[in-house]
């Protein structure tokens, strides 16, 4: 298995949308390397014939009647938002200007 470099941590942090300070990048690179090395042992027993399990108690087709249910009051929901305007969430611009 490959080791996790500082650049790799920076790449993954960008995917995860977490801004990291330079000292955090240094520290995480070392820590994640140790952690990944120890958990890589899962591949020792994960042979092709073993099926994967995603859920402890499998259930399928859990349906409910297709009828509308009351939603939360808009004001209550927006009360916890960083910014709201005209009964909506107010957010920064989605696209950067090139």
């Amino acid at each position: 298995m490959s080791t996790i470099s500082r650049d790799e941590v920076a790449r993954v942090a960008a995917l995860a949308r977490i801004e990291l300070r330079p000292d955090e990048l240094d520290r995480l690179a070392g820590e994640l390397d140790v952690i990944v090395e120890s958990i890589a042992k899962v591949s020792q027993v994960a042979t092709p014939e073993v099926p994967a399990t995603s859920h402890p108690l499998p259930m399928s087709n859990v349906f409910r009647p297709d009828v509308p249910e009351p939603a939360l009051p808009v004001d209550d929901v927006l009360a916890g938002a960083p910014e709201a305007e005209d009964g909506r969430f107010a957010v920064p611009q989605i696209l950067g200007e090139e």
Binding site: A16, L28, A46, T53
Partner: peptide
């Protein structure tokens, strides 16, 4: 970051996929 790494392209089968088999 560990979770994002384990799910990212190229590592998914070795890490997350194997963990599900375990």
């Amino acid at each position: 970051i560990l979770g994002t790494y384990a799910l990212s392209a190229g590592y998914y089968d070795a890490y997350y996929g194997s963990a599900q088999k375990v």
